[in-house]
Simulated assay, not measured.
Amino acid sequence: MDKVRLGIIGSGFISNLHVNSLQRLPEAEVVAVASPTPGKARAFADEHGIPDAYESYEAILKRDDIDAITVGVPNDLHEEVVVAAAQAGKHVLCDKPLARSLPEGERMMAAVHAAGVKLVYGEMLCFAPKYVRAKKLIQEGALGKVFLVKQNEEHDGPHSPWFWDVNRSGGGALLDMGCHSIEFARWILDRPQVRSVQATMGRFMHPEKTRAEDHSIVVIEFENDVIAIAENSWAKTGGLDDRCEIYGTLGNTRADLVQGVGLRTHSKVGYGYAVEKAGSTVGWSFTGFEEEWTHGFPQEMQHFVNVVLGREEPMETGEDGLEVLRIIYAAYQSAGEGRRIEWPYTPPDVEKPVDLWLNA
């Protein structure tokens, strides 16, 4: 095999990023897209020059000429799609979070292992060029012994209505965006064992839209005496904020994926995709430049293609996605019960992670 032929499952925001990134790669060919909304897959295909469009993802999985899929569907559908893809022998990139709950994620991984296919967990921050350079600074010894990692990913609300429904999403800002911050910390520190998790959260801006939290702060203590702080929000106005800080005994570094590269812009009407979000770029904003590259999506897709071609092993695995979910469970339980959660940790049996906060 010298080229990977791919199907795209989903036609929303994240699938646009997947397709735009894959179409940069000479070893990748996107041949089909599936979306259940009548007409949406065809419109998506026409926009991106994709030959075939379906209203059922099963139609893609039945095709022998498709090697792999990317999954960009609501959280409550991840298990269904990934299990079906594995059983059809397709390699999978599943966008974050891995699943709506730990049991769903565990069933997904069982299906992948049974089928012998590859699954890459879709965490693009580990491919973002600035963050990759920050990790190299640590490896080069420029910062000494790292003792604190902070990562923030925040904005004023998700881009699709299903995120607000906890039965579909499984949680709020912590599950949606905290998964980025938590895995960033694990990755940049070479995935040390967790010692404890403590969190606080609240519903401040969107009580009429969701039962979930719209702002969360999580403190993770690792066994190598490093603290990670993950702050995530659906309640921060002014557009996307995505940045990190790393403190060591010999120095520190910080990286900003949005404001550090954006064009300082003022507009009375707003622009781009954000216009659909109630004009969130009205006034002053940081206009993104090469946003997909800056956030690591083409690099992530190149890695996925390399995995399918047998050139690399997954850098972000389903097991990483499961560990992120476990930490998220602990954070919800910590915020609900007002106490530190120690490791080793077995999460309580709940339908969805946010229940550990909502039901406390």
Rank of each mutant, 00 (worst) to 15 (best):
residue 187 W to L: 10
residue 223 E to W: 05
residue 248 G to W: 00
residue 315 M to N: 08
residue 222 F to I: 12
residue 131 Y to T: 04
residue 174 L to E: 09
residue 138 I to M: 06
residue 317 T to G: 06
residue 307 V to A: 05
residue 10 G to S: 08
residue 324 V to E: 09
residue 123 E to S: 10
residue 45 A to P: 13
residue 318 G to F: 07
residue 28 A to W: 04
residue 124 M to A: 12
residue 332 Y to C: 10
residue 209 K to R: 15
residue 303 H to Y: 08
residue 349 D to P: 01
residue 304 F to K: 09
residue 62 K to N: 11
residue 56 S to A: 15
residue 37 T to V: 14
residue 44 F to S: 10
residue 218 V to L: 05
residue 244 C to W: 01
residue 120 V to L: 13
residue 55 E to F: 06
residue 183 E to F: 13
residue 265 T to N: 09
residue 172 G to R: 09
residue 210 T to W: 11
residue 307 V to P: 12
residue 272 G to H: 07
residue 243 R to C: 06
residue 5 R to Y: 12
residue 178 G to D: 05
residue 255 A to W: 00
residue 114 A to N: 11
residue 247 Y to E: 14
residue 223 E to V: 14
residue 232 N to Y: 05
residue 334 S to Q: 05
residue 207 P to Q: 12
residue 176 D to G: 07
residue 156 D to I: 01
residue 195 R to H: 11
residue 50 I to P: 12
residue 349 D to Q: 15
residue 176 D to V: 14
residue 213 E to F: 01
residue 234 W to H: 15
residue 36 P to S: 05
residue 155 H to K: 02
residue 63 R to N: 03
residue 306 N to S: 15
residue 99 A to S: 14
residue 283 G to D: 08
residue 328 I to G: 00
residue 324 V to Q: 05
residue 30 V to W: 08
residue 132 V to G: 05
residue 221 E to V: 02
residue 242 D to M: 06
residue 190 D to V: 03
residue 145 K to A: 13
residue 205 M to I: 10
residue 75 N to P: 01
residue 154 E to G: 04
residue 192 P to A: 06
residue 321 G to E: 04
residue 107 R to C: 03
residue 310 G to N: 07
residue 275 V to T: 13
residue 162 W to Q: 09
residue 183 E to K: 00
residue 303 H to E: 08
residue 105 G to V: 03
residue 187 W to Y: 14
residue 201 M to N: 07
residue 210 T to S: 15
residue 312 E to I: 02
residue 60 I to R: 01
residue 174 L to S: 05
residue 219 V to M: 08
residue 187 W to M: 10
residue 212 A to G: 15
residue 61 L to H: 04
residue 290 E to S: 13
residue 298 P to G: 08
residue 196 S to W: 04
residue 119 L to A: 06
residue 24 R to H: 02
residue 90 K to N: 06
residue 100 R to Y: 05
residue 349 D to H: 11
residue 331 A to C: 13
residue 319 E to F: 07
residue 8 I to E: 11
residue 189 L to W: 03
residue 133 R to G: 03
residue 254 R to W: 07
residue 225 D to P: 01
residue 103 P to M: 01
residue 8 I to M: 15
residue 134 A to Q: 12
residue 129 P to F: 05
residue 20 N to L: 11
residue 46 D to A: 14
residue 242 D to N: 14
residue 162 W to T: 11
residue 141 G to A: 09
residue 55 E to N: 15
residue 100 R to T: 12
residue 273 Y to W: 14
residue 62 K to Q: 14
residue 346 T to V: 13
residue 117 V to A: 03
residue 247 Y to P: 02
residue 253 T to V: 15
residue 170 G to V: 13
residue 191 R to E: 13
residue 344 P to Y: 12
residue 1 M to A: 12
residue 37 T to P: 07
residue 164 W to N: 09
residue 298 P to L: 05
residue 233 S to C: 06
residue 112 V to A: 04
residue 88 A to S: 13
residue 356 L to K: 00
residue 317 T to D: 05
residue 32 A to P: 02
residue 211 R to A: 15
residue 241 D to K: 08
residue 197 V to N: 11
residue 325 L to E: 11
residue 16 N to I: 02
residue 68 A to L: 07
residue 312 E to Q: 13
residue 329 Y to G: 04
